[in-house]
Deep mutational scan, measured.
Amino acid sequence: TTYYDVLGVKPNATQEELKKAYRKLALKYHPDKNPNEGEKFKQISQAYEVLSDAKKRELYDKGGE
């Protein structure tokens, strides 16, 4: 599973699309609303952290993490 899959976006997604997808999923899986989905929330946050940063995203796209 790639970070793009976690957020449900395509690899060519814009920053705005990433932000929108992250917010939607973060609300859905937030531990306050969904106590059993803490791990999913962490995955979503990690994916967004990497993909929202241009340098980290470039490194990730080249095969790094």
Rank of each mutant, 00 (worst) to 15 (best):
K20C: 12
S52R: 09
L51E: 01
L25G: 02
D53I: 05
R57Q: 02
E16W: 10
N12H: 08
Y60L: 03
L27S: 12
S52G: 10
D53M: 03
K40C: 10
K55I: 13
L59T: 09
Y48L: 03
Y3A: 04
E37H: 14
N36H: 13
Y22P: 00
Q46M: 13
Q43L: 14
G63P: 06
T1F: 14
Y48E: 01
T2G: 06
E49K: 11
G64C: 15
K33F: 14
S52H: 06
E16I: 08
T2W: 09
P11V: 10
E16L: 10
G63M: 15
Y4I: 01
E37F: 15
P11M: 11
A47E: 01
K33A: 12
D32Y: 07
N34A: 11
K56E: 06
E49Y: 13
S45K: 15
K20W: 12
R23F: 14
R23T: 13
L25S: 02
T1D: 09
K56C: 12
G63R: 10
Y29A: 02
E58R: 07
D53F: 03
Y3T: 01
L27K: 11
V6R: 05
G63I: 12
K28E: 09
F41W: 15
T2Y: 11
K19I: 13
K55M: 10
S52C: 08
L51F: 01
D5G: 05
K40I: 12
D53N: 08
L18H: 00
N34G: 08
A54I: 13
G8V: 03
L18Q: 00
E58D: 12
S45D: 06
I44G: 01
L59N: 10
D53H: 05
V50T: 10
K62Q: 12
K28V: 09
L7A: 00
N12I: 05
N34L: 06
K20L: 14
Q43E: 13
A26C: 14
V9K: 01
A13N: 01
A47M: 04
L18R: 00
S52T: 06
V6S: 03
V6T: 07
P31R: 06
E16V: 08
E37Y: 15
G63D: 12
T14H: 04
D5Y: 05
V9H: 00
N36L: 13
E39R: 07
Y60W: 03
G38Q: 13
L25W: 04
L7Y: 00
T1L: 15
K62V: 07
L7S: 00
R23L: 15
Q15M: 14
G38H: 14
Q46N: 09
Q43D: 07
K55S: 11
E49H: 09
Q43I: 12
N12Y: 09
R57T: 02
E49V: 06
Y3E: 01
K56L: 14
K10E: 09
P11K: 11
K40R: 13
K56N: 07
F41N: 02
G64A: 14
N12D: 13
T2H: 07
G38R: 14
Q43V: 11
L25K: 05
P11W: 11
K62C: 09
Y4D: 00
Y48G: 01
R23W: 15
S52I: 10
L51M: 02
R57P: 02
P35K: 09
E39T: 07
I44Y: 03
E17G: 04
A47L: 02
R57K: 06
A26N: 05
K20I: 14
E37A: 12
N12C: 11
E16P: 05
N34H: 10
T14G: 04
A13M: 02
R23E: 15
T14Q: 03
Y3N: 02
D32N: 12
P35T: 08
L18A: 01
E37P: 05
K19L: 15
D32E: 10
Y4A: 01
G63V: 11
R57F: 02
Y29H: 05
F41M: 06
P31V: 06
G38L: 15
A13D: 03
F41H: 04
N12T: 15
Y4G: 01
T1V: 12
K33I: 15
Q15S: 11
K40E: 05
P11I: 08
Y60F: 04
V6Q: 05
K42Y: 10
L51Q: 00
T2Q: 06
K55L: 11
D32T: 12
Y22I: 02
P35W: 06
Y22V: 02
G8N: 07
N36C: 12
K10S: 12
Q46V: 13
V50E: 04
L25Y: 04
G8L: 05
K62A: 12
F41A: 03
E58T: 06
G63Q: 14
K55T: 13
G8M: 06
H30T: 06
P11G: 05
Y3K: 02
T2P: 04
H30Q: 07
A21D: 00
S45G: 06
V9R: 01
A54V: 14
A26W: 15
A13C: 14
Q15T: 10
N36Y: 11
S45P: 00
A13S: 06
K10A: 13
E65W: 13
H30P: 04
Y22N: 00
K20S: 14
Y4W: 04
T2F: 09
Q15F: 15
T14D: 05
P35D: 07
D61K: 02
S45V: 15
F41E: 01
N34R: 07
E65P: 12
S52W: 04
K55G: 10
E65I: 14
E39H: 10
A13V: 10
N36F: 10
D32C: 14
Y60A: 03
E17T: 05
K24C: 13
V50Y: 05
T1I: 14
